[in-house]
Design a protein around this nucleic acid. Sequence first.
DNA 1: CCTACCGATCGGTAGG
DNA 2: CCTACCGATCGGTAGG
Lengths: 231, 231
Amino acid sequence: MKAPASLRDDSHAPPSTLATDTALAPKRPRGRPRKTALELDDGNRRQDLITASAKLFRKQGFDATSTRDIAAAVGMHSGSPFYHFKSKDALLFAVMEAGMHTALARQAQALAALPASASSVDTMRSLIRAHYETLLGPGNDFVPVMLYEHRALSARQRTDLARLQTDYEAAWTPVLQRLHDSGQLGAPVKLARLLILGALNWSVQWFDRKKGASLDELTSACIALFLKDKA
Amino acid sequence: MKAPASLRDDSHAPPSTLATDTALAPKRPRGRPRKTALELDDGNRRQDLITASAKLFRKQGFDATSTRDIAAAVGMHSGSPFYHFKSKDALLFAVMEAGMHTALARQAQALAALPASASSVDTMRSLIRAHYETLLGPGNDFVPVMLYEHRALSARQRTDLARLQTDYEAAWTPVLQRLHDSGQLGAPVKLARLLILGALNWSVQWFDRKKGASLDELTSACIALFLKDKA
DNA sequence: CCTACCGATCGGTAGG
DNA sequence: CCTACCGATCGGTAGG
């Protein structure tokens, strides 16, 4: 029953690069990966598996994607993903966790880039734009998978993710509060946050990069829809 | 390969009662269903299967629900659902189609109940409230299943459903247009519709009937968030 | 990471 | 609608 000792870890591997979400899967060299100076060239393969899983989970759904599909996508044989991850579930969790890390990083970066003179509306616009990038940016499959495969997680995994999600949502509250105080936000802050994030998250269902509005246009429409002019 | 002749139909059975979505699954009498005056007491069993499937699909997801789960839920043996539906897919489609029919009926009823003096805001409120009822009303699992299991449908099934969905969404357009013309809706009508319906649809993910806001409070928050005061 | 494999489950069907 | 069953697939593992 016990898994043999190996490189694989069940969950909390630090994402080797926060921005890998955006990158497409590397061309997957078919030959034996040449060993680096270090004794193990892991990490790359783990990332490959995570990236390929994200793409497949998003396109086909978690249940409809077999671990054989994933193995094939990175040029492994059927049993090999289990050398890196102890279960299909652990792979799903790794995708979601990496997605939340990139989302949080992108959000923090967007806020840090704001000038000191930024208004509440500017801040709001920046949060919305960053969120759209996380959801709809090219190759960004991680967070969409998280949003639509939440059900497949275990209770433990859900709890672990919840902390990151709470952090992410918390960043919206002070801005919404200020907008509410100034009369530019018409609904209670908590409900407004749920409704606004819902409107954004749902865009995954209908947004088409190849036609229709751009992410900037979407962002503008949100500002126009959700916020009132300052009295 | 050909299915034996039977009562089952692949898709377009008229929902025997539009309102069955709201009803909980009948207590499923364990004994042999007594034959009615008619030669066949089908219909009831079909409805039972649809209702039980909706509940299971919503709770566990389509892929994670086996046809054996469904059979057990209505007191049948494993192969029997296939007497009524030619495939698991056909059952899913039946759930979604019935859901859209009740949604359309509820929407039409809400609009019909408005007094002639109703303002655009009143109409909007009524549409939102009816939508929340469809999504979050007790026992209303059909439309949530449709929203979250869309991927499992075949192209053909998707096309068939799309017509109903287009009708449903179309009812919002004239109201949004009027609100836009009067300056009460700040975003372009088409994007506003997508964003607003997204905000509503996402509520399935977080709404808890046992705590938090009521459907009326939710509706009020939407009006406050999405609409500006008339100039 | 590959090879070879297992036990379980699943959608679906024949035949009554 | 039940009985009995099939072929396929799937997650996962031992052993190297």
